[in-house]
C-alpha cells in the first residue's frame, strides 16, 4: 500500500504524466491532417519511431553483469530486434517516399 501512495506523491510521476498527456494530444493533432495518400508511409514512419524502445535495450545490455549470460543474451537479442525495427522502419519509409518525390522533380 505504501508503495502505491509513494507513486502518487512522487513528483516524477506527475512530470511523466504531463509528457504523456501532451504527447497524446500532439499525436492526435499531427495525424488528423494527413491525406490518405500518405497513410502507409506514415504508418511505416511511426513504426520506425517506436523503435526508440531500443534505448531501453541498450541500457539493459550496458548494465548487465558480464557473468550474467542470460541477461546478456536477452539484451543482445533485444538490441538486434530494436535495431531492426529502427533501421528497417526508416529505410522502408524512405523507399516509399522516394517514389513520391521522384515524380515531383519532373
Amino acid at each position: 500500500m505504501d508503495a502505491i501512495i509513494n507513486l502518487f506523491t512522487d513528483s516524477a510521476t506527475y512530470r511523466l504524466m504531463t509528457i504523456v498527456i501532451l504527447s497524446i494530444f500532439l499525436g492526435i493533432e499531427v495525424i488528423s491532417r494527413v491525406p490518405s495518400v500518405l497513410h502507409t508511409p506514415l504508418m511505416s514512419g511511426a513504426n520506425a519511431i517506436h523503435g526508440v524502445v531500443i534505448i531501453g535495450a541498450i541500457i539493459v545490455m550496458g548494465q548487465a553483469h558480464t557473468d550474467d549470460y542470460l541477461a546478456l543474451t536477452l539484451g543482445f537479442l533485444a538490441v538486434i530486434l530494436g535495431t531492426l525495427n529502427v533501421v528497417g522502419g526508416f529505410v522502408v519509409t524512405d523507399r516509399m517516399l522516394e517514389m513520391f518525390s521522384k515524380k515531383k522533380k519532373k
Partner: peptide, 13 residues
C-alpha cells in the same frame, strides 16, 4: 514521447 506519439497517432489512424 516517441512511444506515446506513436501510440496516439496509431490509434487515430
Amino acid at each position: 514521447t516517441g512511444g506515446i506519439l506513436v501510440g496516439s497517432a496509431g490509434t487515430i489512424l
